[in-house]
Amino acid sequence: MTDGHSEAETEPNATTDSATMTDDSEDELKTHSAGFESPPTGETIIEAEDVNVWYDDDRALEDISMAVPEHNVTAIIGPSGCGKSTFLRCINRMNDLIDDARVDGTLKLAGKNVYDEDVDPVALRRRVGMVFQKPNPFPKSIYDNVTYGLEMQGIDGDYDAIVEDALREAALWDEVSDRLHESGLELSGGQQQRLCIARAIAPDPEVLLMDEPASALDPVATSQIEDLIAELAEEYTVVIVTHNMQQAARISDKTAVFLTGGKLVEFDDTQKIFENPEHQRVEDYITGKFG
């Protein structure tokens, strides 16, 4: 299905530079770009309204509406094949890379529908970072992996400092600070995934999307990643897809439950979902009666 080789997206003709995101000062890294008022935690940053996705004639998502709050960890859980990753990939329009995919509905990032005609998907992905299921560092040095996004987006600054900060935030600095110029592929699985996290946050996106980031890792690495996620939410908004319910229960503030057919059945505070869900099907899923 995926054909990452082709990019079937609209090409807006404007030739303006990409939006400058940060000034040189280190402090700016910790806040968002100028002109962007830091809202109180809990305000909606991603809002989906009746989002439908089709792959050819198969419907993958049906009428998804949800509001993801700022600086929270929002988990999306559900049995396999019910559209969780598809929804995630709508947020940064990675689905555009798939020829057969068709998206309907509205998906707003900070109030602007990302599927509007004038939105450039490439510019969008500079605001929304992504970490994939299987760690996929580039065959470059650790340093170059982290700076890749900065180079692509034309971000100026003290790259050494940015790299250190990103690696610290990803809880990897201590382990690699003395070998930044070794290949990223030499690291263990868990380290590689943390490198991918560092790579994704180095350009300081607003939102961090994580597609089952720990599913390919061993338990020790998994718990390291989980510890990380809670801290990341202080800087970014994290939306994480996971098929591991316990993980969702452990780390998320809000949880969305997707069930078969690509339907969002319930979306609420994590505690409510796991202790006292509204829908019977959700309760059945949580208690393991199916899925």
């Binding site: 995926t2 990452g4 992905r125 994939f132 996929n136 580039f138 065959p139 890749y148 996004g149 350009p203």
Partner: peptide, 23 residues
């Protein structure tokens, strides 16, 4: 070259030209 590397590049806001030449 595995497709996941291209995906990682696109996810970081690189254009197709960037991904082809730098990844």
């Amino acid at each position: 070259v595995p497709d996941s590397l291209r995906q990682a590049g696109y996810g970081l806001g690189a254009t197709k030209f960037d991904v082809s030449t730098t990844v």
